[in-house]
C-alpha cells in the first residue's frame, strides 16, 4: 500500500512538474475571451447562458487536453528518460506502477476541474448569475468521462508506444463515444443479423460517453432527474478496470 501511495505521489508531482498550471491559466484566458466575446455578441438575449455553456465546455476540453498530454506524454517520457527503471528496479510490481500512475493522474484531473470550476464560478458571479445542482452533477460526469478516456489513453500508449498513434486512437474513441446514441439507432435498423451483431459488439466496446454528456442538457432538471449517477459511476469503474487490466497485462509482457 505504501509503495502504491509513493507512486501516486510521484505521478502527481510529475504531472504538476509538466506545468499543468499553465493549462489552468490558459483556461482562464480562453474563458475570459470566448465567454465574454460570445456574451457580447449575444447582446441582451441570454448572455449568461452563453457564459455558463462556454465555461462547462472549456472545462471538458481542457481536461481532455491535459489527460491526453500527460497520460501519453509522461509515460513515454519515463521510458525514454529511463526514469521508469528507478521504480522497476525496486520490488514494485508493474501493475502497481500503472495503477499508481493512473490514480495520480485522476487526482490531478480532479484538482484541475476544481480550480477551473472556481474560476468559472467567479465569472458567473461577476455577471450576477447562479449555478444549479445540475451544474455540479455535470462537472462530476465530466470527471467520469475524463477518467475513462485516461484509462483508454494509457492502454493505447502501452499498446502502441507512439505519441501520435496513442493520441489519435484515444481521440477517435472519444469521438465514437459521443456517437453511441446515433450508432445504436442505426444498428437497430440494419436487417442483416450478422452485421447487426458485429456492430453491437463494437457498441459495447466503445465507452458510452453520450450517457454522461450532461453538459449538453444540464439546463433541464427534468432530463437530469432521469440520469442515474450510481449506475454511471459503476459503469465507469468497470470500464476503467477492464482497460487497466489490459494495460497491466500488456505492460507485464513488455520488454523495456
Amino acid at each position: 500500500m505504501k509503495t502504491l501511495l509513493n507512486i501516486i505521489l510521484y505521478s502527481i508531482k510529475e504531472n504538476f512538474r509538466t506545468k499543468v498550471y499553465l493549462v489552468l491559466i490558459l483556461f482562464s484566458i480562453v474563458l475570459v475571451f470566448t465567454g465574454f466575446l460570445l456574451m457580447g455578441l449575444s447582446g441582451f438575449e441570454q448572455p449568461q447562458r452563453v457564459l455558463v455553456n462556454t465555461g462547462v465546455t472549456m472545462i471538458e476540453i481542457f481536461c481532455l487536453t491535459l489527460v491526453l498530454l500527460n497520460s501519453i506524454g509522461l509515460f513515454l517520457q519515463d521510458v525514454e528518460n529511463k526514469n521508469i527503471y528507478v521504480f522497476l528496479s525496486k520490488p514494485i510490481s508493474r501493475t502497481k506502477f500503472i495503477i499508481g500512475k493512473y490514480i495520480g493522474l485522476l487526482v490531478v484531473i480532479m484538482c484541475s476541474i476544481f480550480i477551473m470550476f472556481i474560476i468559472h464560478f467567479m465569472f458567473i458571479k461577476i455577471v450576477k448569475w447562479y449555478i444549479t445542482k445540475e451544474y455540479i452533477l455535470t462537472l462530476l460526469t465530466i470527471f467520469l468521462k475524463i477518467a475513462t478516456i485516461a484509462s483508454i489513453a494509457l492502454l493505447s500508449t502501452i499498446s502502441t508506444t507512439s505519441h501520435i498513434s496513442a493520441a489519435v486512437l484515444s481521440l477517435l474513441i472519444w469521438i465514437a463515444g459521443h456517437f453511441t446514441s446515433e450508432f445504436i439507432f442505426i444498428v437497430d435498423r440494419i436487417k442483416l443479423k450478422n452485421i447487426q451483431n458485429f456492430l453491437k459488439i463494437i457498441y459495447y466496446l466503445i465507452p458510452n460517453f453520450q450517457y454522461f454528456n450532461l453538459k449538453d442538457y444540464f439546463t433541464s432538471s427534468e432530463f437530469i432527474s432521469k440520469f442515474n449517477l450510481i449506475k454511471g459511476i459503476l459503469y465507469c469503474l468497470i470500464y476503467n478496470s477492464i482497460c487497466l487490466f489490459f494495460t497491466c497485462s500488456l505492460f507485464k509482457k513488455k520488454d523495456l
Binding site: 455578441l41 449575444s42 452563453v50 455553456n53 462556454t54 471538458e60 456517437f179 460517453f209
Partner: peptide
C-alpha cells in the same frame, strides 16, 4: 462529433441574431 452541441448551438444562436 465532439459532444459539444450546446456551445455550437450558442454560436448558431449568435449567428441567428
Amino acid at each position: 462529433i465532439l459532444g459539444i452541441r450546446k456551445i455550437v448551438s450558442d454560436i448558431a444562436w449568435i449567428q441567428l441574431l
